[in-house]
Amino acid sequence: MGAEKTESTEDGGNTAPPPGRAVSRRALLLGGTAAVGVGVYALAHDELGRLRWRIPGVVKKRKEGAVDARGVQWTAASSANWRRADRPDDYEIDRVVIHVVQGSYRTALKVFKDPGHGAAAHYVVRKDGHIAQMIRELDVAFHAGSRDMNERSVGIEHEGFVDKKESFTDAMYEASARLTAGICERYDIPVDRKHIIGHVEVEGTDHTDPGPHWDWERYLRLVRRERDRPARTKAPA
């Protein structure tokens, strides 16, 4: 599967600050030693911005069931499989990661709703082109097996198997390309193979998806076509 249990520990319990940030965050939130110099102050200010929603009483307003792309269906992943954030204000989004389930659409939804699975992607695309959104784009999904990549990317899971070319239908390519074009438009992500990658290309991963039958040339061509469509429909507010 494109995302699996081994990713659940990548955040050290999913909420611990990453290495090198703990001192500045503790100083800010617990009134520690004053920052020395303009550079340290700027870093501290940035870290406070990243953590402001974690301070008691500060919660970013959310609309239950809201989606980020027009025409997708909301079905929530378990909260154990993602981390609340405020992207792109706290983490820049500059990648789209393509996954293949190694199973059915129904299987993907089932495991992403399972808190014991420890992983989930933002979206799941069915072979007929139907799309479920399971995690908001502003939040960090545990999908790539890398904390850094999770924080900077949107993960799209696709129904099917890496060794079966017939898994990747015309409807799936078209729907997924529209979705990716919208993501690239929202976050000003270049449509190229540096910024739209497969799970196999994430540093340190042992995954092989989307596999040798995923047609990257076709996919990027479709994404560019959707991006450049004159009357492109914007995402919901």
Results as ranks from 00 to 15, higher is better:
Y41S: 14
E226R: 01
P190L: 12
S167K: 00
E92A: 15
D94M: 03
D94T: 04
R26V: 13
D114K: 11
N14A: 05
A177Y: 04
G103I: 05
Y187N: 00
G211I: 05
S24D: 14
A120L: 00
W74L: 01
H143I: 01
A16R: 15
P210I: 06
R178I: 07
F142M: 10
G32E: 10
D46E: 15
P230Q: 11
D89E: 14
N81E: 09
A85L: 05
G32L: 12
R70W: 09
T169S: 11
R106M: 10
P210M: 07
K234Q: 13
L222C: 06
P17R: 10
H45D: 12
R193C: 03
V96T: 04
V23D: 15
Y105P: 07
M1R: 10
K164C: 12
A66W: 01
V125F: 00
D206L: 13
D188N: 10
D11S: 15
I197H: 02
F112Q: 02
P190S: 09
E174M: 10
D90S: 14
E201T: 09
A171R: 06
G31S: 07
E4K: 10
D209A: 07
W53Y: 13
L220Q: 10
T208N: 01
R193N: 03
Y91K: 11
Y91R: 11
Y41V: 14
G103L: 12
A175E: 06
E174D: 06
L43P: 06
K110R: 15
Q133C: 08
P19S: 12
R152F: 04
T233N: 12
L222M: 07
G13C: 11
A132P: 00
Y41K: 15
E47P: 05
D90N: 15
A120P: 07
W82P: 02
G2Q: 01
L48M: 13
L29F: 04
E159D: 09
G211H: 01
D215P: 02
G49H: 06
V59A: 10
V223P: 02
V202K: 03
D86L: 11
V154A: 07
E7M: 14
V36Y: 01
G211A: 14
K234Y: 02
H45T: 13
F112L: 02
Q102K: 06
L30E: 14
A80H: 12
E185D: 15
V40W: 12
A231H: 14
D228K: 15
D209V: 02
F142G: 05
A27R: 15
K234D: 07
R84V: 11
A141V: 06
A171M: 00
A108E: 07
A235H: 06
G12I: 01
R126Q: 03
K127G: 06
I131M: 00
G57L: 10
I189W: 00
V58F: 11
L51H: 10
